[in-house]
Design a binder for these strands. Structure first.
Length: 424
RNA sequence: GGAGAGAUGGCCGAGUGGUCGAAGGCACUCGCUUGCUAAGCGAGCGUACGGUGAAAAGCUGUACCGAGGGUUCAAAUCCCUCUCUCUCCGCCA
């Protein structure tokens, strides 16, 4: 059974864990429940093992005992084996109870992360200037339609609401953004993976997406497989149940389609491709020594910011509040780009430091100096995704409905420097 | 989809009910040795959880031979289910 939390830490410093739960808006009493369950669990293990040891010892005697003397011993051990069975059942029960209790404790938030819910984020910085227009800017869908780049109506016809076709320059623009992101990752030593987008329950569970976000996840009942909402899932599963070497961080970049059911978001972002059931994403994923995780997190953010700069977007960086982290993340930075027609910053990237939470649940360890194994840290971050088209189109639009292609994307569009309307 | 074979420690590979956590080999680690291109000799060498420790040291217990369940006093060994791999046939984007 994979450990769901650091039991040692739970026993040694329960207050720390209580504070973390509190910052997330979770009930700190979950910590005490887990401690008690741990105590019961250990007690039952001890009782079982003592009995089992005796049974083993007596059983071995049977083999050495002459036939005529065996029967008495047999009767005795038979009775013992009944008690062992009962004790074993008690252990299974106690283990399950402990796991259940421990599951309600989410990853320990990092010192400095703002407490509270979604609205309690802190703004780390603003970069660039809001674009100004001497005309009424069109929203991304209007632009997409003018350019023959986005077709929501046919998406809905074929697959339903929140599905779209990218078309013509739209499809090419998405690919260009993806290519640019991939190149950025490759330049920094990432190894590219195109991962499966259907995964087994234990992998989905291990990454923490079956917690609060369970209803966001597509599940294929017949095959009992989950469609991933990000390649993070399969990238985290890549080294599941392995002992790996993280003397140097293992950096992977995954390119995949992502599926999200967007349950409970009815009425929200219904226009355009801001929030759809299916999109594409290039995702960075890192396995690293836990001591290096926070520094790596800053690096991931840095690379994401370099992408924003390359695409000439105005953005801000926020440090997400504890209550809005999701179960796995210990800290999360989002880059939100300015979307002119919404008069708002919208999330374009997200990077999470999951510390040892996912690695613990997926049983991914590294060997330390003493030869001991310990869970590694995992981090992830967006380096390109379809949603970026929204900010790109709106930011770089011109009065006639054309859109200027940022310098950095042109090589990936065959030199195209302006996207021109295909219809008046 | 049909038929068959298989799954044992980092790798190879023994082992068909008790003394097997598992022979042997390779690889690796440590030590010794050797003037001949690297060999020889000795020792060590899995993981997890529990107990006892200040201890991630040591000692000790339990579990693990693809996974789960069963039979038995006792299972790597017997039975059932599942997963995966390989071979052949069929089908197919």
């Amino acid at each position: 059974m994979a450990a769901v939390i650091d039991v040692q830490l739970l026993r040694d410093d329960p207050d720390l864990v209580r504070r973390s739960q509190d910052a997330r808006g979770n009930d700190p009493a979950t910590v005490d429940a887990a401690l008690e369950a741990d105590r019961v669990r250990r007690e039952s293990i001890r009782a079982y093992e003592t009995l089992r040891a005796e049974q083993n010892a007596r059983s071995k005697e049977i083999g050495r005992t002459p036939k005529e003397e065996r029967q008495a011993l047999l009767d005795e051990v038979k009775e013992l084996s009944e008690r062992v069975k009962a004790a074993q059942a008690a252990v299974a029960e106690a283990e399950a109870a402990f796991t259940a209790a421990a599951e309600s404790i989410e990853n320990l938030v990092i010192e400095g992360v703002p407490a509270g819910g979604e609205e309690n984020f802190t703004v780390v910085k603003h970069v660039g200037e809001k674009p100004v227009f001497d005309f009424e800017p069109r929203d991304h869908l209007k632009l997409g339609e003018l350019l023959g780049a986005i077709d929501m109506a046919r998406g809905a016809k074929v697959s339903g609401a929140r599905f779209d076709y990218l078309r013509g320059v739209g499809a090419r623009l998405e690919l260009a953004v993806m290519q640019l992101g991939l190149q950025k990752a490759l330049d920094n030593g990432f190894v590219m993976l195109t991962p499966p987008t259907l995964v087994k329950p234990e992998i989905m569970h291990g990454t923490g997406f079956l917690g609060e976000h369970a209803d966001e996840v597509y599940h294929l009942e017949r095959q009992n497989l989950y469609l991933t909402g990000t390649s993070e899932v399969a990238l985290a599963g890549y080294h599941a149940d392995e002992i790996i070497d993280v003397t140097e961080p293992l950096r992977y970049v995954g390119w995949s389609t992502c599926y999200r059911s967007e349950a409970g978001s009815a009425g929200k972002d219904t226009r355009g491709i801001i929030r759809v059931h299916q999109f594409n994403k290039v995702e960075m994923f890192v396995y690293i020594d836990p001591a290096e995780a926070e520094a790596e997190h800053e690096r991931l953010l840095q690379w994401q910011e370099e992408m924003m700069a390359a695409l000439e977007l105005h953005y801000r960086v926020i440090d997400t509040a504890a209550g809005d982290l999701g179960s796995s993340a210990a800290r999360k930075y989002d880059i939100e780009a300015w979307v002119p027609t919404q008069d708002a910053y919208r999330e374009l990237t997200s990077t999470s430091n999951c510390t040892t939470y996912q690695a613990r649940r997926l049983n991914i360890r590294a060997r330390g100096d003493e030869g001991r194994t310990a869970p590694v840290a995992t981090l992830n971050g967006t380096i390109a995704t379809t949603r970026w088209l929204v900010a790109l189109l709106e930011t770089h639009q011109r009065a006639d409905g054309s859109v200027v292609v940022p310098e950095a994307l042109r090589p990936h569009l065959g030199g195209l420097d302006v996207l021109e309307p295909v219809q008046p």
